[in-house]
Nucleic acid binder design. Sequence first.
DNA 1: TTCCTGAAGTCAACATGGTTGACATGAGGA
DNA 2: TCCTCATGTCAACCATGTTGACTTCAGGAA
Lengths: 155, 155
Amino acid sequence: MAKTSQAAGLHPASLAKLHDLDAALELMYYGWRGMTLEADAYLAKQGLSRPHHRILYVVARRPDIAIGSLIEILGISKQALNRPLNLLLERKLLTSKRSPEQHRSKLLRLTAAGQRIEQRASDHERKVLREAFDRVGATGAAAWMGVMEAIADTN
Amino acid sequence: MAKTSQAAGLHPASLAKLHDLDAALELMYYGWRGMTLEADAYLAKQGLSRPHHRILYVVARRPDIAIGSLIEILGISKQALNRPLNLLLERKLLTSKRSPEQHRSKLLRLTAAGQRIEQRASDHERKVLREAFDRVGATGAAAWMGVMEAIADTN
DNA sequence: TTCCTGAAGTCAACATGGTTGACATGAGGA
DNA sequence: TCCTCATGTCAACCATGTTGACTTCAGGAA
């Protein structure tokens, strides 16, 4: 966590704009950073990082999710999932149990501790969004959502 | 580049929303992905990736930048810069020369080939933004910028 | 002039997070 | 019984970042 470099990186006012959309491009970049910075710092204090949070986030919103579905949603390979997932299980932030009937798949759930960490990390991100939305009002927020949906929809 | 996983990852309609801002959180995530997906695919075809593009992007907008300034803007250590930078120099996408008077620092510039790649990669990203802005009109685009500025400004 | 300092740059070792490939295990259906 | 398929694991590899320890060299101080 190079604290010093962040401030420098966040306002590269010195970059010439070669295209009219360069400002938007950079806003996307620094917006992403702005949203995740505090959350990442919090996670690092817990010895976790972004991929762990992604797992916790999804499992929180899909209790009893199977590993296969988790892989699909996260968009990574099962081998890549393996290490962070095992860490979360070891730390007892997640539990895995096999359901009586569907014995083939493990079902994942957050423990209380896992819920707490997921919530706090996500809260850092939501706080940033909330403050930004507060600054621009409801219509601005709605417009933002519209643009982001269009961007996310590209593929 | 796991092409298959992208589609699955992009529309996790199945995730329950635990908080009112969860939708915005996910939009930021998938928006970032949406913007960078094609650009990253293009870069990968060139044997490059995001950090290389970042370097090319900055140098394009700051010809004759010194390495120290580049480090500062990118927010990474000089050692982390070293490998991708050298690759770009080897590939002759960048040139470095020492100025006659300020002999202490190397000045970086894009070659024609470097300019071409920077432009094409950035064009992929700008295309996504442009299409999204077109969908929502000028006021929507302005609102989006406002929100993103507020988010980027957090730190 | 010589010497020292400090910025710039490089090299080595390491951590992390991702990839593929190969394979083991074990439940459940044909 | 046997095959299939989800799960789990191991190994090798790659890319990107980190820190620490150097080298190099311009330019000021002694």
